[in-house]
Simulated scan of single mutants.
Amino acid sequence: MAIISLFIHTYLFILGAALGSFFNVVGLRVPQNQSIVSPGSSCPVCGHRIKPLELVPIFSYIVQKGKCKSCKTSISPIYPVMELITAILFTTSPLMAGWSKELAIAWTLISLCMIVSVSDLAYMIIPDKVLLFFLPLVLIERLFFIPLDPWYDALIGLFAGAFIPFVIILISRGGMGGGDMKLLAVLGVLLGWKLVLLAFFLATVIGTLAGVFGMLLGKVKRGKPFPFGPFLVIGALLAYFFGSSLIQWYTGTFFTY
């Protein structure tokens, strides 16, 4: 059994890394209205067409020491980082979500989160095309195959996820982007209203701390926007995998009578 478990989790790690590489392509090309199929990957500096052996997730970056094989230009670490994070999340999901139909939701959530993170980090854009692809998918999953309890919690989550950032956008006149609002709406379908509110709260706390720390280091300037999507992603993943435990701990700690 241990050998079988090792084989399965090794397979999931490799699958996750390969998908992470694909999510990089989607996240970088879709906002630029480029095909995710062709042309093949190439160095943006010298135009070197990257060969299959140079595209092995994580491994190729390490072997090439993070540089283009042709012109030696540094390759952005976002590629191997996203591949590694996706691989880890795909591998550990069964341990947290269990071997059940819910695992499909976990992998869908991870896929969405990785793509929008790449797009937002690269261009400060969360593409509508990506969200419009995932919205019907998550609605079908949550309403017909892996419903929440009650089933309409997914629909409440959709509106709850959109409502709060919509109010913030109106009040602050641009304090959040429309992409963040639409992302939260899609996340609301996956998480339900309680967990999407928790996800937003966690994203706000983590984002605020990161912003303050960035200003102390001189990396973030006051009044200058920075991508909030990755923090929403972190909040959503924490809420999905640990949200019920966090809510139970919070209510048990502060609302005991």
Rank of each mutant, 00 (worst) to 15 (best):
G192P: 13
L143R: 01
A106K: 00
M176V: 07
L195M: 13
K101W: 03
G98I: 10
Y79A: 00
D180H: 04
M124E: 00
S93Q: 10
I88K: 09
S74Y: 11
L187P: 07
G98R: 08
W107T: 06
G188D: 10
G188I: 12
E102M: 06
L89N: 13
K67A: 08
M114T: 14
I75D: 07
I78G: 02
E141P: 00
L135A: 04
L95M: 07
V81H: 13
S70A: 15
F90T: 09
K182G: 00
I156C: 09
M176Q: 03
A160G: 12
G177V: 06
F90V: 10
T91S: 12
P136M: 01
W151G: 01
W107I: 05
M124Y: 00
G179I: 02
V116T: 11
I169P: 11
C113L: 15
P80R: 12
V138A: 02
A97K: 05
A199N: 11
E102S: 09
L103A: 09
S93N: 09
A106E: 04
K129W: 14
K65V: 08
P80F: 04
L190A: 04
V196T: 05
V196K: 04
L183T: 01
S117E: 08
S117C: 14
I156A: 06
L135W: 10
A199H: 06
P136Y: 03
G161E: 05
V130C: 00
G174Q: 12
F133A: 05
V81T: 13
G174N: 12
F163P: 12
L109Y: 02
P94A: 09
W151H: 09
K72H: 11
L95G: 14
F144N: 03
I126R: 11
C113E: 14
E102F: 06
T108I: 08
I169H: 11
F144Y: 10
Y123L: 01
L135H: 01
A199F: 14
K129V: 05
M114S: 13
L84F: 15
G98E: 11
L148Q: 13
I146D: 02
K65F: 15
P77Y: 02
T92F: 13
D120A: 04
F134G: 01
A185H: 03
T91R: 01
A104Q: 00
P147C: 12
I171P: 06
V189E: 05
L139C: 03
G192C: 10
L132P: 03
M82S: 06
L109F: 05
D149R: 10
F133K: 04
L158C: 15
A122G: 03
A122Q: 05
K67D: 08
W193K: 13
S117Y: 15
C71K: 09
G66A: 12
S111W: 15
C68S: 00
A185L: 08
L143N: 00
I115K: 12
G179M: 01
L170R: 15
I169R: 14
F159T: 15
I78M: 13
G157Q: 12
S172V: 03
L184G: 04
L170D: 11
V196L: 14
Y79R: 00
T91E: 01
L187H: 06
F133N: 05
G66T: 00
L195R: 04
E102A: 15
V186G: 02
R173V: 05
P127V: 11
P77S: 03
S111V: 10
E102L: 14
L195T: 07
G174A: 10
G179Q: 01
W193V: 05
S117Q: 04
A122Y: 06
L137P: 02
L89H: 12
